[in-house]
């Protein structure tokens, strides 16, 4: 096994809200190895983004958020760091790409100014050096006419270009870990592919670890080496991309995979839908959290809280009491789907 650069142990993030304390992330554990891409998947509202932003401790700890557990980065627990030391990690060792580049770039500063900022803060470069570096970074992320672009404001760029700018900002200090939170959701399909290619090639070139957060499983299948599936603030299944796509053991993972649109030839089949929606955080069901939407639910599921269990080899873990039966019974159609998606 390669060196682990990030190891999260039992992370919980709760928010103080008007309706009481909401635990958006509840006991999440996973790790990222050096140079690998870990996919973090699940529907909207299942805690992926909160998990990722908790790693950088972006939530306001004075008024709203509270973290528990351990986040080991390079062997050091980020949750114990002071604000000043934490700042040295952010944008330097660990960077983040957000979903919506238009709202994530500051509208009143030029693109160049925003790329230079982490360089000025962390590498203490002079303004001229930082500017030169910014132009290089724009070239690296494939933006034509970088000299002109550094002087422009975010609203003057196209959506794809803004996303590239965000990646340039994230990469400015050559981080060891990149967290990409739905980096392509807001983009056109063709641009999506370009951005994913860019992230992939940079991941190889710079050998940085990447956490790719997405609800798009086909992207995960193409890019990630390992996958963690989240539901309602918990990880319900974790394993290599082959295990997850070839033999998904959790009914939720199965549902997600079955709901990927297929290629030609199988179009006659109706697209699968997971029944119901993700419940709100103040309506977490007792017992297994997925039970109300699960097609394989037994009465025992609703009574007993389910632990995340090792299913055997290679760190494949599942949070389902029926995983052994389900793995064998339902495997066939799912495997076919996985093959056609090009896994």
């Amino acid at each position: 096994m390669r060196e682990k650069i990030l190891e999260i142990e039992n992370l919980s993030t709760s928010f103080k809200t008007e309706r009481g304390i909401m635990k958006a992330v509840d006991g999440v554990s996973f790790h990222v190895e050096k140079g690998e891409i870990l996919g973090l998947v699940g529907e909207s509202g299942c805690g992926k983004s909160v998990t990722s932003q908790s790693i950088l401790r972006l939530y306001d700890e004075k008024y709203t958020a509270e973290y528990e557990g351990r986040i080991l980065f390079d062997g050091c627990d980020l949750l114990t760091l002071g604000e000043k030391e934490m700042r040295k990690i952010r944008g330097h060792e660990i960077s983040m790409i957000f979903q919506d580049a238009l709202s994530s770039l500051n509208p009143v500063f030029t693109v160049g100014n925003q790329i230079m900022e982490p360089l000025l803060i962390h590498q203490k470069l002079s303004k001229e050096e930082a500017r030169k570096k910014a132009v290089e970074l724009l070239t690296l992320v494939g933006i034509p006419m970088p000299e002109k672009r550094v002087e422009q404001y975010p609203h003057e760029l196209s959506g794809g270009m803004r996303q590239r700018v965000m990646i340039a900002i994230a990469l400015a200090c050559r981080p060891k870990l990149l967290i990409a939170d739905e980096p392509t959701t807001a983009l056109d399909v063709t641009v999506q592919a370009q951005i994913m290619d860019l992230i992939l090639s940079l991941n190889k070139k710079l050998s940085m670890g990447v956490i790719l957060i997405t609800h798009d499983l086909s992207v995960v299948a193409e890019t990630c080496s390992r996958v963690a599936v989240m539901y309602l603030g918990q990880i319900v299944e974790e394993g290599s991309v082959f295990e997850i796509f070839d033999s998904p053991s959790h009914p939720y993972t199965k549902g997600l995979i079955q709901s990927i649109p297929r290629m030609a030839g199988e179009r006659a089949r109706r697209l699968y839908m997971i029944p119901g929606t993700v419940p709100l955080l103040n309506q977490i069901p007792s017992g297994c959290r997925f039970a109300p939407r699960c097609p394989y639910v037994l009465s025992a599921c609703r009574k007993r809280t389910q632990e995340l269990l090792e299913t055997g080899a290679g760190g494949h873990r599942v949070r389902c009491m029926r995983f052994a039966e389900l793995e064998t019974k339902e495997a066939a159609p799912v495997r076919a789907a996985g093959e056609e998606c090009g896994v």
């Binding site: 932003q53 950088l56 972006l58 604000e83 700042r87 040295k88 990690i89 952010r90 944008g91 330097h92 960077s95 983040m96 957000f98 919506d100 709202s103 994530s104 770039l105 500051n106 509208p107 900022e117 982490p118 803060i121 962390h122 965000m166 900002i169």
Partner: peptide
């Protein structure tokens, strides 16, 4: 706003 969060993620001081 998102861009302040983004700035925080860059390591900008309070």
């Amino acid at each position: 706003s998102d861009y302040v969060k983004m700035a925080k993620a860059k390591g900008v001081s309070e």
